[in-house]
Lab assay of single mutants.
Amino acid sequence: MSIQHFRVALIPFFAAFCLPVFAHPETLVKVKDAEDQLGARVGYIELDLNSGKILESFRPEERFPMMSTFKVLLCGAVLSRVDAGQEQLGRRIHYSQNDLVEYSPVTEKHLTDGMTVRELCSAAITMSDNTAANLLLTTIGGPKELTAFLHNMGDHVTRLDRWEPELNEAIPNDERDTTMPAAMATTLRKLLTGELLTLASRQQLIDWMEADKVAGPLLRSALPAGWFIADKSGAGERGSRGIIAALGPDGKPSRIVVIYTTGSQATMDERNRQIAEIGASLIKHW
């Protein structure tokens, strides 16, 4: 067993022997301040990774656009098919120029040779490549099948209805392509620590998230040296922004954090800054 596999296998073990965790309302004060600064709703939840206990939450059962955070769930569904012998990570998928959609920095470079399922998941999570996500959605049967996968996990809230990039439209009061912070946090925890996926697939999923290259201005910008984070960000229309993450000190994750916002007129930089400040408060009061 590799060191990384050992780390993920012992996530519940280490967490069980940690000192009790206590909620700190100071972080919620910052979440509410972010709402004021952005002029928009902000949803927040913080779960203990081992027990699933909610440590703090704000608007945990209000719907927010998922945006690209759905790509972690998508690759979880792909990995479940791999575990069941219905898919192979090494299978190569070929596609054409007509398949390319807006923001496809990886797939646009491989029109000639195609990409493997493993490479597509890596591109979808680490670079948020939209064509990679659409190609992977095709392998599982489309958005409705991802929703069905989530329902089978016990998540009857999260739903995907459309493809990239239309799913980022974020129309107010439109339930399409949305989740709730509580539902997303619980589902992410199941994917990373539950028995739904094999140990190898859980490790692969967290490795992809740990290698995320496009979430630097968010929670990662607030992390002290030595902290662990595996995350996936999302951005959408109407001032929408979000991030889902597993993080913790001492090089291992111990909490799940989900943050979503929508309806702001603020710039992307300002949305990023507010999420980073929430992260800084979380870490300060850990």
Results as ranks from 00 to 15, higher is better:
H24C: 09
P25K: 13
E26G: 15
T27R: 14
T27I: 13
L28I: 05
K32H: 11
K32D: 03
D33Q: 14
A34L: 07
E35K: 04
E35D: 13
D36R: 15
Q37N: 05
L38V: 06
L38E: 07
G39D: 12
G39Y: 15
R41N: 11
R41V: 13
V42C: 11
V42R: 00
V42Y: 03
G43H: 00
Y44M: 07
Y44G: 02
I45V: 09
E46P: 00
E46D: 10
L49P: 11
L49M: 13
G52T: 07
G52H: 10
K53R: 15
L55S: 13
L55K: 14
L55E: 09
R59C: 07
R59Y: 13
P60L: 13
E61Y: 07
E62C: 05
E62Q: 04
E62I: 09
P65G: 05
P65N: 15
T69M: 03
F70A: 13
F70N: 12
F70Q: 13
L74H: 00
L74Y: 01
G76V: 08
V78M: 10
V78D: 02
L79P: 00
L79A: 10
S80A: 09
R81F: 10
D83F: 03
D83C: 08
D83L: 03
A84W: 15
G85V: 08
Q86M: 07
E87S: 08
E87P: 02
L89R: 06
G90V: 06
G90R: 12
R91S: 09
R92N: 14
H94P: 04
Y95W: 12
S96V: 07
S96Q: 10
S96T: 09
Q97M: 13
N98T: 09
L100P: 03
L100R: 11
V101N: 12
V106S: 12
T107C: 15
E108N: 15
K109T: 13
K109H: 13
H110M: 09
L111V: 09
D113V: 04
G114L: 08
V117Y: 15
R118D: 14
R118M: 06
E119L: 02
L120S: 04
L120C: 07
L120R: 01
C121T: 03
A123V: 07
T126H: 10
T126S: 04
M127W: 13
D129G: 01
D129P: 01
L135H: 09
L135T: 11
L135G: 02
L135F: 08
L136V: 10
L137P: 01
L137S: 12
T138S: 14
I140D: 02
G141C: 13
G142K: 06
G142C: 04
E145Q: 10
A148N: 08
F149D: 11
F149L: 15
L150G: 11
M153F: 04
G154A: 11
G154H: 05
R159G: 11
R159E: 12
L160F: 10
D161R: 03
E164V: 00
P165A: 06
E166M: 15
E166R: 12
E166N: 15
L167P: 03
N168M: 08
N168Y: 02
A170C: 11
A170I: 09
A170F: 05
I171L: 15
N173G: 07
E175S: 12
E175I: 12
R176L: 07
R176W: 10
D177Q: 01
D177E: 02
T178K: 02
T178N: 03
T179E: 00
M180D: 14
P181S: 08
A182I: 08
M184T: 03
M184K: 01
A185M: 03
A185W: 00
T186H: 12
T186P: 12
T187W: 14
T187Y: 05
L188R: 00
R189I: 09
R189C: 11
L191K: 02
L191P: 00
L192V: 09
T193G: 12
G194P: 11
E195I: 03
E195Y: 04
L196M: 10
L197A: 09
L199N: 04
A200S: 09
A200V: 14
A200K: 15
R202D: 03
Q203C: 03
Q203N: 03
I206F: 03
M209T: 03
E210P: 00
A211H: 15
D212H: 09
K213T: 04
V214E: 14
G216N: 04
G216E: 03
P217W: 13
P217F: 04
L218V: 05
L219K: 07
S221W: 07
A222C: 10
A222G: 13
L223R: 08
P224C: 15
P224I: 03
A225N: 14
A225H: 11
G226Q: 05
G226A: 06
W227H: 02
W227D: 00
F228D: 03
F228V: 14
D231P: 12
S233Y: 01
G236R: 01
E237P: 11
E237R: 13
R238I: 14
R238N: 12
G239I: 00
S240L: 02
S240D: 05
S240T: 09
I243Y: 06
A245L: 10
A246M: 12
L247Y: 04
G248P: 00
D250E: 03
D250G: 04
K252P: 09
P253R: 07
R255T: 06
R255E: 04
R255V: 13
I256E: 02
I259L: 09
Y260M: 07
Y260T: 04
T261I: 10
S264Y: 10
S264D: 04
Q265Y: 08
T267Q: 12
D269F: 15
E270T: 04
R271D: 15
R271V: 10
R273L: 06
Q274I: 09
A276I: 05
A276H: 13
I278R: 01
I278E: 01
I278K: 01
I278Q: 00
I278L: 14
A280G: 10
S281C: 15
S281E: 10
L282M: 15
L282H: 03
I283Q: 07
K284H: 15
K284Y: 13
H285N: 10
W286A: 02
